[in-house]
Amino acid sequence: MSEINAEQVAHLANLARIALTEEEIEHLTAELRQIMQAVEKVSEVATPDVPPTSHPIPMQNVFRDDVVGDVLTVEQALSGAPESDGSRFVVSAILGEEQ
């Protein structure tokens, strides 16, 4: 299959929002190549006639009644926040959305 390159790894890091260093990207590219080579083995037996399994124990239609339950208090909700204004979470400016 495809040979993963540093540019791809940088793109993946961006998708995953991890500001990897150049050095990490280089290192990871080599490792991922090796790992992908090993895991590509799955394609040997994953033929079209085999259905995929996403849940190990097959169940279906697990629903909740539409009844209000417990909520967190504002204090609890914000307790772990790096920054808040007492009622909302504070994040730095969002750019790149509007120009």
Binding site: R64, D66, V67, V68, G69, D70, V71, L72, T73, V74, A77, L78, S87, R88, F89
Partner: peptide, 28 residues
């Protein structure tokens, strides 16, 4: 609906819970 899609927190799109104070209608 009275509660959210995936949690039992009150649904602010139901008039009864509209306009609640920020972060008061949240489950984990």
């Amino acid at each position: 609906t009275r509660t959210k899609m995936f949690s039992a927190a009150p649904n602010p799109a139901n008039s009864e819970f509209h306009g609640a104070e920020p972060n008061t209608l949240v489950a984990p």
